[in-house]
């Protein structure tokens, strides 16, 4: 299987004393990979480093074979990395359509397509429909949504950028069982469209249902890597 993301000896040390990540290395292939571990294990820090929001103290990141350490976050998105945040980061004053249209603009730029406002709106509506948000909510402001809806909206905005790899950070937390089921179905369908996933997740049911590979982080280090149907574990 072709490697999509390669993390080599990534470390992050805050204020020269607090070690958030220590020599983390792994490769992920096209598919769905989960990262789990207790709070404070360094999962979100790792996501922030991959998406460029936080700089690693040392180490290397390769995406589709290219070293992306020096890329700014927007360039990583343009390269094909989409992400959601643990606490949704949306454009609260904008409507759902506008939120997704911002992502659609980037998606269109990637394929060098010049879309007018009407086309942006149309495609944003299609993505919202795909994600399962009802049409009667398209024009309301993002801040008026429930937490679960905000998380789904954030997934829609990131998907609109046409990513090859999606980093999803605890998307199911705060969701009801039904919402989590719906989320799992959406992820599966997006995977069928060719989007790979790296998900930070605590919901073991969701992990077992979706992930082909599970990475366990603890105190900034990988303590276990397992693959579906594989009882062997190793570093």
């Amino acid at each position: 299987m072709k490697t999509i993301l390669e993390i080599k000896n990534i470390s992050k040390i805050y204020d020269k004393t607090v070690v958030a990540l220590s020599n983390v290395s792994f490769k992920i292939e096209y598919g769905i990979t989960a990262i789990t571990g207790p709070n404070g294990a360094g999962k979100t820090t790792l996501f922030n480093i991959i998406s460029g929001t936080v700089k690693a103290s040392s180490g290397e990141i390769r995406f589709l074979g290219k070293r992306i350490n020096g890329y700014q976050p927007h360039k990583r998105c343009m390269a094909g990395i989409g992400r959601t945040f643990q606490i949704p980061r949306l454009f609260d004053e904008n409507s759902l359509l506008e939120n997704v249209a911002i992502g659609v603009m980037t998606g269109a730029k990637k394929i060098k397509e010049n879309m007018n406002i009407d086309s942006l709106k149309k495609q944003a509506g299609e993505i919202l429909n795909f994600i399962g948000i009802k049409e009667n909510k398209y024009e309301i402001k993002a801040k008026k949504l429930t937490l679960a809806e905000q998380k789904m909206l954030q997934l829609a905005t990131a998907v609109a950028t046409k990513p090859k790899l999606m980093l999803i950070d605890e998307l199911s937390s705060g969701m009801t069982f039904q919402d989590a089921l719906r989320l799992s179905d959406v992820i599966k369908r997006l995977y069928d469209y060719g989007i790979s996933f790296l998900m930070v997740e605590h919901n073991m049911e969701l992990i077992n249902k979706l992930a082909e590979k599970i990475i366990v982080l603890h105190e900034g280090q990988i303590v276990n890597v397992s693959e579906k149907g594989d009882n062997e574990t190793g570093k």
Binding site: R89, L90, E98, A101, I102, M105, T106, T161
Partner: peptide, 27 residues
Amino acid sequence: AGKKIWLKLSAIRQNRIAAEALGIATI
């Protein structure tokens, strides 16, 4: 300045980190 730039600026203004994660060169 068309509506698209207006939309991008509103994104940058409201949440710079989210805008960057969606591919907008905020700087």
